[in-house]
Structure formats: structure tokens, C-alpha cells
């Protein structure tokens, strides 16, 4: 059984009087340890796929099963628990909390767990070391470069060791050099058997992934195995 099983997934949005199909009959299986890139033009449904997979937006039809759990059959609060236990989110605009320090931002997903402050700090420090941010624990996000902020976001996404990492345009706001560094970090994570689903516009980024999915008008038109 695959880690992620998406069957006949559809998602419709209301746009004024009209209904727009953001996702239309998408079927997709992702195995544990896979690195999947999702590509497609703007409005093709890439981000919608990520939000639905992330338990943030209920689909109009179809099912999403993660680790044998049909996530949209879970009650609202359990869905939040699913996000905490199974997912790490990385956003294009980093989405760090401005009033929390670097280490506090990384510890954010742990704040609602029973883990002690001491253990939280230890876990966050380890992640910061892994993402190359050692020594910057007590800085605030606005004191960091874009690349560093992205690394903090990655550390936050991975601090509780989630089985799945969802990344939305992780290099979208970075210069090409920093973008390559971040992708190298993704490659390292993948080598450690981290399952990654990444939405990207950048074709160069797909070379790090094991599979690329192409979406067009909400439908999956192509899927390629890389390498």
C-alpha cells in the first residue's frame, strides 16, 4: 500500500456565479521515500493539490488516504492532528512568525505537544544545525536573508520528523544560487528517505525529484519518472 493514495480527486471553487474545477478526477499514488515534483502552468491546480493533500481544503469529490487513513473522514480537530503528525509545510514566502526567534519558529509545531521545553530546544537545535543555521538561534526572521529564512522554514517543517514534506515553490523567492543550495538540502533529505511533494515552476528543480507530475486545467496530463 502506498503512503499517499489519491483517488478521483476533484475540487471546485465558486468564482462569482461560476464554478471552477481546480482539480478534476486526479488519481495519484506516492510511495514512502519518493520525491515528487508537481509542475504546471498557473491555475493548473498545483497548489490546490497541495492544500488538499495537506488537509487544509476539503475536496469536492474523491478520497485522500495517507498511511491508510482517509483524512477527510477525520473530524476537524483530528485533521489538525494529522497535519501535525504527518506533514511538514514549506511555503513560498517562508511564513515565519515575526515575533518569534529562529529557534522559537522551529519549535512552533512542538508547542502543542507534551515534549518538554528542554527536549524541544534540543530537537530544534539539531534541525538548525542540519539546515546550516547554527549560531542564529536567537535572531528574528527579519534579521535573516531569504535563503536563511527558507532554511528556518525547512527546519520548522522537519522538527517533528513528519513522514511527508509538502513544499510550495520553495525556491520561488530566492536567487538561483540560494535556490540551488535549498534544492541540495532537499536532495539530502530525500537521500534520508524523506517523502517530499514539491510544487515548482522551475524545471531545474525537478532533476532532484524521482518523479514529475504535470497538471493542466486541474487534470493530471503526464507523469514522468526521473533519472
Amino acid at each position: 500500500m502506498s503512503l499517499i493514495e489519491i483517488k478521483k480527486l476533484s475540487k471546485a471553487y465558486k468564482s462569482g456565479e461560476e464554478s471552477v474545477m481546480a482539480l478534476n478526477d486526479v488519481n495519484l499514488n506516492i510511495e514512502q521515500g519518493e520525491f515528487v515534483s508537481v509542475m504546471g502552468p498557473s491555475g493548473s491546480g498545483k497548489s490546490t493539490l497541495l492544500t488538499v493533500l495537506g488537509g487544509l481544503s476539503h475536496p469536492t469529490g474523491g478520497t485522500v488516504v495517507v498511511d491508510e487513513i482517509p483524512i477527510y473522514k477525520l473530524p476537524m480537530e483530528r485533521l489538525a492532528d494529522y497535519r501535525r503528525e504527518y506533514l511538514g509545510f514549506i511555503f513560498q514566502s517562508f511564513h515565519l512568525i515575526s515575533y518569534l526567534t529562529v529557534i522559537e519558529n522551529v519549535m512552533l509545531p512542538l508547542a502543542i505537544t507534551e515534549i518538554t521545553n528542554r527536549d524541544q530546544s534540543k530537537m530544534a537545535e539539531e534541525m538548525l544545525e542540519e539546515t546550516g543555521l547554527k549560531g542564529k538561534e536567537n535572531r528574528f526572521p527579519d534579521q535573516l536573508s531569504g535563503g536563511e529564512q527558507e532554511r528556518v522554514a525547512i527546519a520548522r517543517a522537519l522538527v517533528n520528523s513528519p513522514p511527508i514534506l509538502l513544499a510550495d515553490e520553495p525556491t520561488g523567492n530566492l536567487d538561483s544560487k540560494t535556490g540551488k543550495e535549498i534544492m541540495a538540502l532537499f536532495k539530502t533529505l530525500h537521500e534520508k528517505k524523506q517523502t517530499i511533494v514539491m510544487v515548482t515552476h522551475n524545471l531545474d528543480n525537478t532533476e532532484f525529484s524521482t518523479r514529475t507530475i504535470l497538471l493542466k486545467d486541474g487534470s493530471m496530463v503526464e507523469t514522468n519518472k526521473n533519472g
Binding site: 476537524m76 480537530e77 489538525a80 494529522y82 501535525r84 509545510f89 512552533l108 502543542i112
Partner: peptide, 14 residues
């Protein structure tokens, strides 16, 4: 936006 981040990282409504 901040509340969205809380929810995305697994914070419950409560």
C-alpha cells in the same frame, strides 16, 4: 496569515 501558519503546522482551533 499567522493564524493560517498555526493551523498548517497542526494547531487545533482550540
Amino acid at each position: 496569515r499567522e493564524i493560517g501558519i498555526f493551523r498548517a503546522v497542526g494547531f487545533r482551533k482550540s
